[in-house]
Computed example of a mutant assay.
Amino acid sequence: MLAALLYGQEDLRLETVPDPTPADGEVVIEVGAATTCGTDLKVWRRGGHAKMLKPPTLFGHEAAGQIVALGAGVIGWNVGDRVVANNSAPCMTCFFCQRQEFSLCTNLTFNNGTFAKYLKVPALIVQHNLLSVPAGLSDAMAAMTEPLACVLHGVARSNVKPGDRVVLLGDGAIGLMFVAALAKQSAEVFLFGGSDSRLDIGKKFGAAKTFNYRQVPDLPNLVRDLTDGWGADIAIEATGVPSAWETAIACVRPGATVNLFGGCPRDTTITVNTEQLHYNELTLKGVFHNTPEFVRAALALIASHTVPFELLISDHQPLKNLEQVFQDMKQRKVVKVAIVP
């Protein structure tokens, strides 16, 4: 089969590799659609990921399709079932899993390789994070379950209460998903991004106000003007840029929570004012990945059709155009693209 392999920094190659065969407990799905993600873009640009993969490796981690082969011992699934596979599953037995902190699992099983005709799904993911796609839901829509699950996990860790004023930094797919999830919690969301077309999607997802940060000379001061001089109750950073982490901290009121969600490049650092952190009783949280609970909640939210998540899919392209798709993502011409093998 034809598959995408990542060899290093912006080194993505389409190669012919053997069709996968499922081992015990595994399944193989024929990919109906694999959606691109901001994480894929970062990994492509940086040439790797601290947790998910090390080159050279099969690439891509969001996909839905149809089961075409079952390994020995697989129960509850049949050839022909339409499914979406999360890109990971916790072991359920380690120190963190025993405390239900599944995103911190020390043995987290990751799976990559969605940009291909077939995807082999490891046994742990089959057991814990393989879900049926509801009738009437397209593969491209179902494939967005994984990033939305990460967002729902992030919202849950942000201590959101109805009426909270939330600053959201970043208008990528993750940032826009955050807007939708926060609006569902009756939060007042102030979205900052660099693309007017993406900010328009943010409005449709429920943002109370949107701002092009290029037109804002002093972002923290603007936030104070929007919040009676105090600052936001919550700030969520969804860009993965260290300076934006510092901006998020500068935007909040005493007693606020700052969710540092966007993964920054390895070995980067930020500066935090210790007086502000201590005397303002700030809560700074790094939030990573998802859990089985939120994988299920994400698919249910997409299938409810209460949020027009289809607005995030800018285009559908064949696998042979994947390199150009990443170039377009790099230039912010598209949000997400559904790759159809």
Score class of each variant (00 low, 15 high):
Ala3Val: 10
Leu5Arg: 15
Leu5Gly: 02
Leu6Tyr: 04
Leu6Pro: 12
Glu10Lys: 15
Leu12Met: 08
Glu15Val: 14
Pro18Arg: 03
Pro20Val: 11
Asp24Lys: 14
Glu26Thr: 02
Val27His: 10
Val31Thr: 03
Thr35Gly: 12
Cys37Phe: 08
Thr39Gln: 06
Asp40His: 13
Val43Thr: 15
Gly48Ile: 11
Ala50Pro: 07
Leu53Asn: 08
Pro55Arg: 11
Pro55Tyr: 03
Thr57Met: 07
Thr57Leu: 01
Leu58Arg: 15
Phe59Cys: 06
Gly60Ala: 04
Ala63Ile: 07
Ala63Thr: 07
Ala63Gly: 15
Gly71Asn: 03
Gly73Ser: 05
Gly73Ile: 03
Val74Ser: 00
Gly76Trp: 12
Val79Glu: 14
Val83Trp: 00
Asn87Cys: 12
Met92Trp: 04
Met92Cys: 05
Cys94Leu: 03
Cys94Ile: 05
Phe95Leu: 13
Phe95Asn: 09
Arg99Pro: 02
Thr109Val: 14
Thr109Tyr: 02
Thr109Ser: 07
Thr109Ile: 08
Asn111Pro: 02
Asn112Met: 14
Asn112Leu: 14
Thr114Glu: 04
Phe115Cys: 04
Ala116Cys: 03
Ala123Met: 06
Val126Pro: 15
Gln127Thr: 08
His128Asn: 11
Ala135Ile: 00
Leu137Lys: 05
Ala143Val: 04
Val151Ser: 01
Leu152Pro: 04
Ala156Arg: 11
Arg157Cys: 01
Arg157Tyr: 00
Pro162Arg: 06
Pro162Gly: 03
Val166Asp: 01
Leu168Thr: 06
Ala173Arg: 06
Phe178Met: 04
Ala183Glu: 12
Ser186Pro: 01
Ser186Asp: 15
Ala187Ser: 11
Glu188Trp: 00
Phe190Asp: 06
Gly193Asp: 10
Ser195Met: 11
Lys204Glu: 14
Lys204Ser: 11
Gly206Tyr: 03
Ala207Val: 04
Ala208Met: 09
Asn212Met: 05
Tyr213Glu: 04
Tyr213Val: 06
Tyr213Gln: 04
Val216Arg: 04
Leu219Pro: 08
Pro220Gln: 07
Asn221Leu: 10
Asp225Gly: 09
Asp228Cys: 01
Gly229Ile: 11
Gly229Cys: 08
Trp230Gly: 05
Gly231Asn: 09
Asp233Glu: 05
Ala235Met: 01
Ala238Ser: 13
Thr239Pro: 13
Gly240Ser: 10
Val241Glu: 06
Ala244Tyr: 00
Ala244Asn: 01
Glu246Trp: 10
Glu246Thr: 00
Ala248Tyr: 09
Ala248Arg: 07
Gly255Ile: 07
Thr257Cys: 09
Thr257Val: 11
Phe261Cys: 03
Phe261Ser: 02
Gly263Ser: 10
Cys264Lys: 00
Arg266Phe: 10
Arg266His: 12
Thr269Arg: 15
Ile270Gln: 03
Thr274Phe: 11
Gln276Val: 12
Tyr279Asn: 05
Asn280Thr: 05
Asn280Gln: 14
Leu282Met: 05
Thr283Ile: 08
His289Glu: 02
Thr291Ala: 13
Phe294Asp: 10
Ala298Asp: 12
Leu299Thr: 07
Leu301Ile: 08
His305Thr: 00
His305Asp: 11
Thr306Asn: 14
Val307Gly: 05
Pro308Gly: 11
Phe309Met: 09
Glu310Phe: 04
Asp315Glu: 14
Pro318Trp: 05
Leu319Asp: 10
Lys320Thr: 13
Leu322Asn: 01
Leu322Arg: 01
Leu322Val: 12
Glu323Asn: 13
Gln324Trp: 07
Asp328Tyr: 02
Gln331Cys: 03
Val334Ile: 13
Lys336Ala: 08
Val337Pro: 09
Ala338His: 00
